Computed example of a mutant assay.
Amino acid sequence: MKFSTKCVHASGGPDSTGAISHPIYMSSTFAHPELGAPGYQYTRESNPTRDRLQDLIAALEDGTDAFAYSSGMAAIDGALHLFQPGDHLILGDDLYGGSIRMFTNIYEQYGIEFTYVGTSDLDAVKAAIKPNTKGIYIETPTNPMMEITDLRELSEIAHNIGALVIVDNTFLSPYFQQPLNLGADIVIHSGTKFIGGHHDVISGFVIVKDEELAAKLRLSFKTIGACLSPMDCWLVIRGVKTLALRMEQHQKNAIALAEWLKTQPKVTKVLFPGLPEHPGYEINKSQTTGFGGMLSFEVDTEETAKKVLEGVELIQFAESLGGTESLLTYPVTQTHPDLKPEDAERKGITRRLLRLSVGIEDTDDLIADLAQAFNK
């Protein structure tokens, strides 16, 4: 099936009732017809509605197994359970701030060692490798600086030392990028974002191809219990049906807004992988089918940034991303407040930087809203 058809049908056909919309199985427990009979037992372990969603997400990422978690952070936590005290991981140095907070405040205390590297520089990645390096965790594009990593080359480097490659694919969604087909071992999503797509459900996903990895993940998944509820699973299934359509409009709007922002006198920099001048443009084109709906831009002063944030009317000043409504975010105080000021400044996450999650509204309306905010 083509991707857009998978979005609608890969969760499976109607059940025995003929229901086109798959039922929400709200039961916490299931009766057994006889001793030893196969089937469902307890929703923390498995649930028919969640199974439908997991099959759908696995199909979209071209994986063999997927795990639906209660949030994107829970999904990251689930993947980190594959590692042990004494292991070393290389991390991209421009990750979502919540991920950094988890690695620093939780997993470093458990004895896992981390080294942050700009993974667009593969020589820097090689230089960071240690005898105990067991994994490389990245985003591409990164949040919020939109840096691009060559997934094929990175995967080869990692696999040569027996390390796993974990890719947070939230920004592009499986519609535009499928890291498992580029050499990655594990794909993570905050399903709250583009996959759910409507700002109405929190969810996270881990997807793999390798059966051994899947078995390890399933053990921690059912044991810890950070699984997605049946109702939320149904909401995500419903959201995914329009994923392909939404991603095309997100991208159409993002390209137009990036080009418009370049012409604005108070904008000093536009960070969007779909601009030919972006340093990662060619690599991104080689490993994706598009550029997505996320961009960041820098303005001339902190005062301008504040004026734009408070001046938008159609676009909402809010944290998060990936939904039908456009959201403007201030990374330095919203997504990355835990960074040390000097680290934030070094990465370009300053009080002049804004991140825009471009929604599916009419392009001209979005441009008009930004224009009036700049000119207030």
Score class of each variant (00 low, 15 high):
Q54L: 03
P48S: 01
L82C: 00
G204E: 01
F171S: 15
P331V: 07
A305P: 01
L219N: 11
Y330P: 09
Q372A: 10
G162K: 05
P38G: 11
I57Q: 01
I367P: 00
Q41H: 15
F171Y: 11
E139D: 09
L245W: 06
S296E: 10
T149I: 02
H81F: 12
N375D: 14
E303P: 05
K340T: 02
F291M: 10
G280K: 11
P141C: 03
E34M: 06
H9W: 01
T149L: 02
S326R: 06
W234R: 12
Q41T: 15
L327G: 06
S220E: 14
L122W: 06
N143C: 08
E147W: 02
K216S: 15
K269F: 10
L261Q: 02
T170A: 09
F205D: 10
G72W: 02
H32N: 13
L309R: 14
P341G: 00
D51R: 12
D369M: 09
H22R: 14
T301D: 08
Q316I: 14
H199E: 12
S70I: 12
M102Q: 07
L180G: 05
E325G: 01
P33R: 09
S70Q: 14
P141E: 00
G13T: 01
V167L: 00
Q109A: 12
L353A: 00
S46W: 13
I76D: 05
D210T: 05
K134E: 12
I157G: 11
T149K: 00
A226P: 00
T119D: 11
I138A: 00
Y330K: 06
P265G: 04
Q249Y: 09
D94F: 05
H9V: 11
E303C: 08
K216E: 15
A215P: 04
T140K: 00
S173N: 11
T333Y: 04
A368C: 03
Q251F: 06
G239R: 07
T170Q: 01
F30T: 08
T49R: 02
A184P: 00
L243T: 12
V270H: 04
L172G: 01
F297R: 03
L261T: 08
S326N: 10
L56A: 01
D121F: 00
V312I: 11
S203Q: 09
T223Y: 04
G322P: 07
G183I: 02
T104I: 11
P179H: 03
D343R: 14
L261S: 05
I20F: 09
G274I: 13
A19Q: 05
A184Q: 05
Q178V: 13
C227W: 09
F83L: 03
E147A: 05
